[in-house]
Design a protein around this nucleic acid. Sequence first.
DNA 1: ACAAAAGTGTTGAGAGTACACCCATGC
DNA 2: GCATGGGTGTACTCTCAACACTTTTGT
Lengths: 221, 221
Amino acid sequence: MAANEYPKPSVTVDIVIFTINDNDLKLLLVKRGVEPFKGKWAIPGGFVKLDESLHEAAKRELAEETGVKDVYLEQLYTFGDPKRDPRGRVITVSYMALVNSEKIKLSPSTDSSDAQWFSLKKLPELAFDHKKISEYALKRLRWKFEYTTVAFSMLPEKFTISQIQSMYEIVFGKEFDKRNFAKKLLSLNILKEQGINKNVSYRPPMLYSLKADIGEIIEII
Amino acid sequence: MAANEYPKPSVTVDIVIFTINDNDLKLLLVKRGVEPFKGKWAIPGGFVKLDESLHEAAKRELAEETGVKDVYLEQLYTFGDPKRDPRGRVITVSYMALVNSEKIKLSPSTDSSDAQWFSLKKLPELAFDHKKISEYALKRLRWKFEYTTVAFSMLPEKFTISQIQSMYEIVFGKEFDKRNFAKKLLSLNILKEQGINKNVSYRPPMLYSLKADIGEIIEII
DNA sequence: ACAAAAGTGTTGAGAGTACACCCATGC
DNA sequence: GCATGGGTGTACTCTCAACACTTTTGT
């Protein structure tokens, strides 16, 4: 039963890259330049190299597309229907990434007609089973927002409470009560005051950062 | 960028099969007959065929090992470290299955020295990264018990409340208050009374079944 | 003084937790 | 009548949801 007795499928990673800008939740799509689905929009991804782990492959593809490293990256689910790629058997391990839109510069090698941010509300038709993958990613994103601190990975180091609340309202598509939101957030005891932001024409808000010992994503369930 | 330009990894499915018997949570392990790790215990699994989906592959391997079909089966996570298999690049999609121990007959082709149930408390050393996989599966199992109705898939059609409570106590390794447990369970409104079990030498318990419209696993979060 | 967003407290409802006694049966 | 597990209610605490007004700044 050696590992090479069987015909082998191809293995890819596909990455649903989320960001928030213009008060909207967006994901990055690339336009396919080759058949199949030539000209259709697709989630960025590519083949896994034999000497890299799945996570490394996802990180590499992400860096190639967006130029960012050190972002939140999480494996979602592996899609392996035999008919999902007309070229042959391709199994894809899907990932989700959360990036801070201010840190992104879309890869200069791909001009902007090839890679674009799309609002979740106005997605074009997607290649392969990428609609299913992006729906799965959105569910997971909401779950993670509800029960962990991933949201902070889409913010700059210092942020205001209303910036956080606004992200939650965008992701869940509904509004939250300001008092209850702040009360809950502060009671978690994960924020540190960072002084006051003076560059606004209204009452200046308190800036916060995550406490030093909250480097990693924690569960707030 | 055809699908076959790259050298390909092998893809397997590995299934963590849980059951409860003798008041203990157990998982099924098979003894490896070939190198590498010959003689070591491993989670059952095998290569994915080119014309079957991942779920079908997991179902097939499960049926080959245990003879059971129609059990709860869920994809967990895909492990793809380049060094996880000394034979070469093997990516494995892990699954978890929950089976009713009364319905199992271990495959007759494998004698009992080759496949055995092990208590989670006394696992032997495992081949490959199977320890990591089984730990991941246990976490997911506990999560699913807490927030969904998967537990019922390990019970016969009619069951008592204390059977359910006993399963939860085994899976979480702690005891629950009998009154609170019954109150919570009955308040979910998913059980139907099925008359009284008379074959006991103490006050006979009420038997329940899942309501007809609760065929699928539901979230009880 | 006005516009804009920041900041803040109380109340009621529901869920979870802790806790102990009587009941129905077989032997 | 005794051993065995079955079945049940109350009180407390905590969390969540609903709800509106004052404060601070720039212009």
